[in-house]
Design a binder for these strands. Structure first.
Lengths: 139, 139
DNA sequence: CTTGAACCTCTAGTGACTAGAGATTGTAGG
DNA sequence: CCTACAATCTCTAGTCACTAGAGGTTCAAG
């Protein structure tokens, strides 16, 4: 009997069993076959595909982008312009988030640093939250 | 007739009408009264409360944390230790995300930079996604 | 008194999983 | 061959913080 069970595949790719099944329901990853009893069986190709999916997810690509990247990957002769495009868009997003998070970090740091550890009525954390004008960074 | 309608409150706080209603269903913000016909009416205190909520959301505090911060704010004589704690936890989260996003940024930048704009079979984007070992940063 | 904007409630959808119930299958040991 | 029991199956619902829309009612201006 060749093929990995869903449990083994989950182990091999550090993915939860339910997640793998979820990818099947949304049409991202179908097991190459099933046992007579209905258990899923995956082959090496499936495993590679899942690795690709997980890696892209780790980099924060949304499922729909991954769907497109997979279909590009399945057609190696096509131009890689779209892949490039998708990656660049993701990079833009990441950079926007970075900018925002840095502003948040600054503000939170200041709030925490200025808290005198006394009562709520004197608390800088509560005070700043009540009044945006007390913020220095824009967020 | 005193008080703001939901629409005016929405305008004043740059919040969507539905979002304000949502905050009511989860018990975060109740209008101080209603018209005979059932329309919500908000007062200044409600507006301040919503401002607090929105500001905290902008800083990424989850609703449950905001609920607690609000109740602290309503009891100014209590110690601000918890408020401090919540803010510090949020700061930790933000810093963790920053670290991760910086790693993603690095990896995506490299992917995009190394793409030769040719065919998919030679595409660095696709190649890196297929094989995590090609990544330099851990993510 | 009419018009039409603003409001009402209720339900369902988003993204990417995650959790659990209740039933079936696979496999190792006896 | 039988028995445990782990692993798997399907199906449904929950997560978070909204967002969108249907279908109906109220309010304010003219």
């Amino acid at each position: 009997m060749s093929g990995l069970t869903i449990g083994r595949l989950a182990e091999a790719t550090a993915t939860k069993v339910q997640t793998i099944r979820y990818y099947e329901t949304i049409g991202l990853l179908t097991p190459f076959t099933r046992t007579e009893g209905g258990h899923r069986l995956y082959d090496r190709k499936d495993q590679k595909r899942l690795t690709f999916i997980r890696h892209a997810r780790e980099l924060g690509f949304p499922i729909e982008a991954i769907r497109e990247l997979l279909s590009l990957s399945d057609n190696p002769q096509t131009s890689c312009e779209r892949a490039d495009d998708i990656a660049r868009r993701r990079l833009d997003e990441v950079e926007q988030r970075l900018t925002r998070l840095k502003a948040l970090q600054k503000e939170l740091k200041r709030m925490v640093a200025e808290c005198g550890h006394g009562r709520v009525c004197d608390c800088r954390v509560i005070e700043v939250l009540s009044d945006h004008r007390l913020c220095q960074a824009s967020h």
